[in-house]
Structures are given as C-alpha cells and as structure tokens.
Design a protein around this nucleic acid. Sequence first.
DNA 1: TAATTATAATTAGAAATCTAATTATTAGAA
DNA 2: TTCTAATAATTAGATTTCTAATTATAATTA
Lengths: 145, 145
Amino acid sequence: MKETLHYLLMADHLSFQKKLLSSIKGTELTPGQPKIIDYLTYHDGAVQKEIADACHIEPATITSVLLGMEKNGLIIRKNLNGNRRNLYVYLTDKGKNASKQVAGYFDMIEKTALNGLGADEKEMLISLLTRVNNNINTQEVVENE
Amino acid sequence: MKETLHYLLMADHLSFQKKLLSSIKGTELTPGQPKIIDYLTYHDGAVQKEIADACHIEPATITSVLLGMEKNGLIIRKNLNGNRRNLYVYLTDKGKNASKQVAGYFDMIEKTALNGLGADEKEMLISLLTRVNNNINTQEVVENE
DNA sequence: TAATTATAATTAGAAATCTAATTATTAGAA
DNA sequence: TTCTAATAATTAGATTTCTAATTATAATTA
C-alpha cells in the first residue's frame, strides 16, 4: 500500500504542505492563502474562477479565502470594462511582500524534496507527474474488468 | 509554475482525490473515510495514533472521523491487554464491505492515472516519489543561500 | 429585441482539518 | 515506590473545504 501511486501522491503532497505551513508560522498568513498568493505571483489580475481551477479548490472556497485576504490587505478585487460579473484579483504591495516570502519557502522546500536527484531524474519525475495529471484529467475512469 | 514539483504533487493528489470522491457518491461514505478504510484494510487493529500518522492527519482529526465511522457501524474500537490509553480500531463486516468497494475505486483510478506508462516508467515514478518522500520527512529545510 | 441558457460569485450549512489545551494513562527516573 | 516526563485520546474553537442553492450578470438563441 505504501507503494501505490495514490498513497505516495498523498504522502508527498501533505508532507510538503506540512513543511510549508510550519514555514509560514511566523507570518500572519493562514493555511489557505499561500497557494493563492503563489498563483497570483505569476497571474496577477486573474479572475476568481481561474484561481479556483488552478488551485484545485471550489469557487465557494475561493470566495471565503479571498474575503480574508482582502480584509487583511493582501489583495484587492475589482470589476473591469463594465463587466460586473467577473472579479479581477490583484496583489497589493503587502501581498507582493508576502508573495516574495512564500516563493522563498516554496523554493527551499522544493530543493529539500529534490535533494540527491540528478537533473535527468528531476526532469523524468516532472514529466511522469505531468503525464499522470493529464491521464486523470482527460480520461474517464472505467469499471474494473 | 505548472512545472514545479509542489504544483504537480498538489494537482495530481487533488485530482485523484476528486475522482475518488465522485466514485463514493453513491455510497454513504463521507470524504474523510476512504483513506482510513484503505489503511485499515491492510492494518486492521491499528491504534488511532498509527492511523493518523499513516494518513497524514492529526490525532484530533482521527478522533472526529472515527467517531462518525463508529456511529455508522463501519468500525469498532476497543482497549486491549488492560491498556486503557490506546484504542485499537477494527473494521466491522459492514466496514469490510466498504473496504472492498473502496479498494476497487482506488484501483480503477490508479489504472487510469498510470495509463500509457510502461512498467519501467511506473517503477521509476514510484521510486522517485519514495525518494522525495524520504527527503521531505528526514531532512531539515534550510534557508536559501 | 426578448426569452433562454450559461456563467461568476456568493451564501448556507456540513464535514474535514488544524492548533492548543486538557484528561487520562503509561513509562521512566530518582 | 513515588514523582516526573512522555504519550494517546479527546475537547474546544477556528479555518478550509465541500455541495447545493441562490443571485446577478452576460451571452446566446429564437
């Protein structure tokens, strides 16, 4: 069981997440915020729906986390071009500072995680995980024969 | 960013999890239960603390999920050998039925996820994920240089 | 143009999760 | 043996997350 893909994906992801959460202990960030900040770092001005998809959480969840981030001054949200349905999300200066911190934490843990892997092995791992991701997201799950 | 390890681990894990949750829709299982059932399938009679560690969740969380599972007749918990601190957890017959179902779902999604990968590639992926897991769990995260 | 359909965001309510503190019990040290 | 330290489980309270339903708006179709 320890050798199944799903067990390892869970173990790796949650262990990584746990390291990240202990990293942000000193900051005023809450557990749900780093991944959103990470996404906004590279996609400032994204619409809420887009952030939800990228972070693999539901729109309802984004609403509540962004509300907290807005209250805390990390982001601002605004309508654009007379479109009153989409809300575009931007990091404030405070949010950008947090973004730099968060990026540093992610990098450190990533390095730790990949320690001892050669460049070819890293590449292989990323490639295989990408293929798995495509498989899960594009294929129908079929009943066992 | 889409190519970072942590992003792929999150994407793979959460996409897998989402498939699993849609699989258990028809059952009366709640989202927190399958991974515990999966663990008990191979470790019936485990102590709560052990289950928590294996499932990468906190003891407090286990307490609340197991309470629900016990109420629903999926497990029983008992003290053994006069030790009144440890609680040993066992699947009931109902729990064992659920276990068979859950194992089937995990297998199906696992197959879907690994579609198109050769035996050597699967082996490589498992091996790399295991090394990453060891790295995260055994090494200290170091400040960036 | 008007009606229908689709989409984005939110709300409400529940489950899963966390941390910190507490309780009970066991193990180890003086 | 008694006191102290460590451990397992629980409780309390907060955050994150979900689904389902709702609201508001935009896009499409008749």
